[in-house]
Amino acid sequence: MTEPHTDVTPGAELARPCHKSLEALHALIYFSPDADEAFAELGLDTRPMRYFAGRAAPMGAVGAGVVAATFYNFNPRIIADVIPHAWSIADPAAVIETRFRAADTALRKLLGEQAIASDELAEAAALARRATEACRPEARPLYAGHADLEWPQEPHLVLWHAISLLREHRGDGHLMALQEAELCGLHALVLQNSAGAGLSRQFAQASRGWSDEEWAQAQDALRERGLVDADGAVTDEGAALREHIEQRTDALAAAPWAHLGAENAKRLAAHGKQLSKLVAQNGAFPGSAFAGGARK
């Protein structure tokens, strides 16, 4: 059985709760009708094209293989259906500009002008930006692409961009942890689903593009490793491996929170929870109970 990671990394204990408190403020862009409309006007007329191109654009006009590698748990076939074709419709610079503009519109609607202009949001933006000062780009390609972008000026967009950086920095580290655990993207997705975490199987398969046969093959592979049982439920060994991966992810994501310090990290998390509650109450995730995917 895999033993939990026991190294004490400064900031690691803050990484997961801070991530959870802020995640909804970034993820709202993927549910926003304003973002859908803005990307459609640009010519990106399908949801997969908008998602893959919108998130990958900071890396430049990369090919489908790079997007599949950095997004990890999506079937490369569905990425190849839209990348690199998306770059022939709109170059990455235009996609980036549209994404920031859509984030601005969505945040103003969901937060309201009072929250947008509040001291609390300004403090959250300053703290989140300070946290990103400790992020390093080595072996983190998706983070590095986003880190090369110019900072916006308005506090609510500074906050959104900083959260995007922290999220992609953590996500790239999560992929390192999955690689150490010898889990490919599909196997990580199936193991997470077997534990009753994250996306439902139906939504995970549909949105990530995996067939029933591919899912069953992944379950067989996990069963051979003793990570799921005959019924497809996670075993004790599988649960221990998942916790080990989460702890490694926290350790790899710790630097920003150690840099910020416990008191400021907790202040940022408190602001994040308050703002996340506000956007959820105002319909940021219509028809969907927000939950993170296998990529962190």
Rank of each mutant, 00 (worst) to 15 (best):
A206R: 08
E237G: 10
E23K: 10
G287Y: 13
A254F: 07
K273H: 09
D36F: 14
G60K: 08
G238F: 13
K277F: 04
G112T: 12
L42I: 06
W87E: 10
G173F: 03
A69W: 05
K109T: 15
K296R: 15
V228Q: 02
D119N: 11
L107E: 09
A204S: 13
G43P: 01
F52M: 14
H156R: 05
P4R: 11
Q219L: 15
E263S: 14
R129W: 13
P152V: 06
A197R: 02
Y72L: 11
A35I: 05
A253P: 03
V190E: 01
A218I: 00
S88L: 13
A206H: 07
A147D: 11
E224H: 00
Q114H: 14
P137K: 08
E97I: 03
L199M: 14
R140V: 08
W151E: 13
W160M: 05
S164V: 10
A280D: 14
Q205K: 11
V62P: 09
W87R: 09
A233D: 10
A147Y: 07
Q202H: 13
A284W: 13
H187V: 03
S207R: 08
S118V: 12
A284Y: 12
W151L: 15
A106V: 10
A221G: 05
P4V: 04
S276K: 00
A12D: 03
S88M: 12
G283D: 01
L44I: 09
F31N: 05
L199E: 07
T9G: 02
G292M: 07
H174D: 04
E150F: 08
P256M: 03
A56C: 04
A262D: 11
E150C: 06
G196C: 05
P84C: 11
G272V: 02
L28S: 05
M49E: 15
F52S: 09
T6I: 13
G112S: 13
